[in-house]
Design a protein around this nucleic acid. Structure first.
Lengths: 161, 161
DNA sequence: GTCCCTATACTCGGATAGCAAGTGTCCGAGTATAGGCGG
DNA sequence: CCGCCTATACTCGGACACTTGCTATCCGAGTATAGGGAC
């Protein structure tokens, strides 16, 4: 079970877009800043757009910007936008197959395995929902090396020209 | 991100093997009881065997049985045996790429995104580690319909003949 | 009746195809901009 | 000098190949058993 590669890219993109309110960057700039292939990143940006996390502005000087305040976008929102909203565990109800099966009405409660898996899933989601893009931006501002922040800021000003 | 199909099968197999100490069932019987293809289930049983969760007995009257007490086998053990032990999130350190990169020594701490993902991963694993096969067996015994348990017990006695 | 041997049937284990989803890429539709032209 | 028009360059969006890993299956090596035969 592995998370899609695009999740990492999408989170970093949202983090970058979250450093300044209304900051708009094109797919090309976002790819350039992160050193990832532009064409493939565009695919994930589309997913973010469809999910209502970022909004796209067409035309020259267009690009992507956050659709909501960084505080109101949880990491879980981004993860689900890229990787899908489905549960990690799919219960095929194999207890209802084989020689010990009963009529369908005899299974009022979900099986213990399914219930446990859902609990683990909920714990994972809760952790991701507890952090917002704003939190990530703050953590970067706090932990990153000053030189890196300076280079980033410099690139940003030149990219917005 | 979706869990492998085999995880469900493996958990149900371990649950069945956990109902009685030393209970040994062949791959054929396990597949028959759960109504799943025997050939494919065998592949997952091999994984369980390699992970030291079940031990295999060759020859006629052979099969699989739990290698440890049900109490000492966590659900996480089974999940990791089938689906791998790797983290769900793979950080490719894209912050070290692009125009704002710095020498590698300038990144003493893992990035905030990576740290958060690891926390979520840990929460998921903790939940799965908190339950053992013995717990699953108990929950089935408590929640399943008496008729289903009776049919299961009947099949079991005939299968052990 | 007891022991031994052999053939058997059953078991696990790894090696081998098929397929779906993620990965990676491309080109077309649409728009704000920049420059040129006319008034 | 000012306003309008046109061409341009850039943007997003969806449609199209490719690869990895999960899904599914098969056959071969090995062993405990069951039955038969010899003593």
């Amino acid at each position: 079970m592995q998370l899609s590669q695009g999740v990492e890219w999408a989170l970093h993109c949202c983090t970058l877009l979250g450093v300044a309110p209304g900051l708009t960057l094109s797919g090309r700039r976002l790819a350039e800043f992160h050193g990832v292939p532009e064409a493939y990143l565009a695919k994930h940006l589309q997913s973010l757009s469809r999910a209502g996390i970022v909004e796209s502005l067409p035309g020259a000087r267009g690009g992507y910007r956050l659709a909501r305040a960084p505080r109101d976008i949880s990491v879980l929102d981004v993860v689900e936008a890229i990787d899908g909203r489905g549960s990690t565990f799919r219960c095929t109800e194999i207890r209802q197959r084989g020689p010990a099966k009963l009529p369908r009405t005899k299974y009022p409660k979900p099986c213990g395995i399914h219930a446990l898996m859902d609990r683990a899933d909920a714990a994972w989601r809760a952790e991701l929902a507890s952090a917002s893009i704003a939190d990530i931006v703050m953590s970067v501002a706090r932990d990153a090396h000053p030189d890196g922040l300076a280079k980033g800021a410099k690139w940003l000003t030149s990219a917005m020209r």
